[in-house]
Write a protein that binds this DNA or RNA. Structure first.
Lengths: 353, 353
DNA sequence: CCTCATATACTCAAGTCGAGTATATGATAG
DNA sequence: CTATCATATACTCGACTTGAGTATATGAGG
């Protein structure tokens, strides 16, 4: 997790705005003041494209809006949070989940709002990884590229245009504005936050800081969720703002951002990438999948060396032809690494040049 | 997080035991089915000893039992989970928190039980780090070495005795027993789990796997919490079991285990160690603090090289005398690293020999 | 001023890593 | 049927990192 936790050594952050009455009677069976929402970012890679399972809310006034599969947690019905999540997802999508991992619990007042809808006060985000084969048979919902929601994260064709064309100038302006907030005791200047998150001024782009970037855009009022939640947009900018990625229901885009950041970090020290692969694969297919998650362009030869010398894979003995060149050996995940090394993973680093 | 998430690729894990009625009327203002508990593992280092702030429940029948500061989350009173936590902690202990980070949300039915007490269904664990100076003035609660609750984690005087004397033989026996559970689709054999978590048979001890070890001991029925929650103990063992560390209220020891594992992991890639240090310190004091957290014995010269070349510290210009030898230069944390490097931290590795 | 204990500087070999060149081999066009 | 292509795989090499050690510096205390 690379939120701004390190920045935020606050003395105290806001206990003054105490009793803004938000009492609300929810019709759901056993819920009252606090409702717990379980949300899943279910990720797969289809044709080298990282995708996430979304459910479109057709009841929306215009066009509908995407959301993650979710449902309330009822301690009566489910023994654990995770089993609650699994059954909600299966009910809504028909998909049985394999690998599941908890991400974060969000509870900010105001960040769950949807106009006129009931309120989720606390949402627990989960990350699930699934393989393309299992991923096909869906009852509801559809797979969408995650870059649809985060176009600035898509570096597959080089640095995304939207960064220099839209995001940077608006953030630079936002950074110039005077800060009136009283909260953090030792605040990080907006300029520095922008520079670090987006790797400006010679800084490196850190592909793991997905959540930090989204939160920054939210704070700057540049994503639709911020406007929906009643934040002022990055003022001083006249005219309608462009869409900075497709919005999602509630705080689901924040959860998805957390999920993307977590997968990107995790494949480096745990072999979770294989949750996204079929049983047999070529090393280049593996590399393509890693690149789909992380952003592209790993050094092919070094990638082989890394994966093989780490003992992450073993050859099946067969080859795959029709690769457009010399046939490629097929490999499978070597499960024994889990029993050998303390932290096996694809320790890749993107190419500099 | 290094739970057994990688092991547990379950097909489905337990939706059969559906309606075990646990309805319960809680007297607290606006709560019903689900109550959210906020729990803080507040960590400091005092005289090179890693300590955690605990509050002893004197209302207990015999002797009292330790617990972490905690309280229910009320969305009416607090805008964010974190501000709720901060005010609970301040109310209970008089301590204003600095660095705070969310750990994990636990929701297992049965893991929160305390005989005859009301039930917390979901507990959100937090880690807080504080410096010794701030740490002194407490209204309630006291600092206890965290090794009191996890004696097997204390490698400061070499491999702890309790491992070979008590834990290993009992775990080996537990590993031999037939497994009747139906849950995991591809279960990790108990033997392997034991070997990996505790680094037996030539495996390395991974100081970050604190939670995995505790959960393993829980599953084996060796910690008091397991017996309290109604688990059978590692059967076949006759006579009273020794205490495997002091127990805590609810699932607080699990939260503390998560906290220890997280700090141990995090100081390696974020400069959070300085949250535990006074403003000025010598490099050896810094090393001692790192060793208190991680387990001891870093190579002194290389530690210096690492910390200095990473730009984590800068000399204050003064020296500290009375070190028993040559005076040591004083350093302070160089905050600018946060703005420079993507993931600055004390990338130490314990000495092999 | 000698000895002690610690602080700090420097050395060196082994391993890791980025980046490249060279070779192998099935598919396909002519 | 062979030249060409595209990819797969093998090997190389210098730069940097890292573990582990030796050497020197300096205040305190007798």
């Amino acid at each position: 997790m690379v939120t701004d936790a390190n920045f935020k050594r606050r003395v105290h952050d806001g206990e003054s705005n105490a009793a803004e009455e938000t009492h609300h009677t929810v019709s759901r069976s056993e819920t009252a003041g606090v409702e717990i929402g379980l949300n899943a970012a279910i990720v797969a890679v289809i044709d080298d494209e990282p995708v996430v399972l979304v459910i479109r809310n057709e009841a929306e006034p215009v066009g509908g809006i995407d959301g993650l599969p979710f449902g309330p947690f009822s301690p009566v019905a489910h023994r654990t949070l995770e089993s609650g999540l699994r059954s909600w997802v299966e009910e809504q999508t028909g998909l049985g989940l394999g690998y599941v991992e908890q991400l974060y619990t969000f509870g900010d007042r105001g960040r769950h709002a949807e106009p006129g809808d009931s309120m989720h006060v606390v949402s627990i985000g989960y990350l699930a990884l699934t393989e393309t084969g299992h991923a096909r048979d869906l009852a509801h919902g559809s797979w969408r590229s995650w870059y649809q929601y985060f176009p600035w994260e898509d570096w597959r064709k080089g640095r995304p245009e939207i960064l220099s064309a839209e995001i940077e100038p608006r953030l630079k302006e936002w950074a110039q504005q005077p800060v009136s907030r009283s909260a953090p005791a030792r605040p990080v200047p907006r300029e520095d936050r922008v520079r670090i998150c987006f790797g400006l001024d010679g800084g490196a782009w850190d592909e793991e800081k997905v959540l930090d970037r989204f939160e920054l855009l939210y704070d700057a009022g540049l994503v639709e969720e911020a406007r929906r939640d009643g934040r002022e947009s990055a003022s001083g900018w006249s005219g309608p703002l462009p869409r900075f990625g497709a919005p999602m229901r509630f705080d689901h885009r924040r959860i998805l951002a957390t999920a993307i950041g977590r997968v990107r970090a995790k494949i480096k020290y745990r072999p979770v990438i294989f949750e996204l692969m079929p049983d047999d694969f070529t090393l280049f297919e593996l590399q393509k999948t890693v690149e789909a998650i992380l952003g592209p362009h790993l050094h092919k030869q070094n990638f082989r060396r890394l994966v093989e010398s780490a003992g992450l894979v073993e050859p099946t003995g067969e080859v795959k032809t029709q690769t457009g060149g010399r046939p490629a050996k097929l490999f499978r995940f070597r499960r024994e690494v889990l029993l050998e090394r303390p932290a096996p993973g694809v320790r890749v680093k993107p190419i500099r040049s």
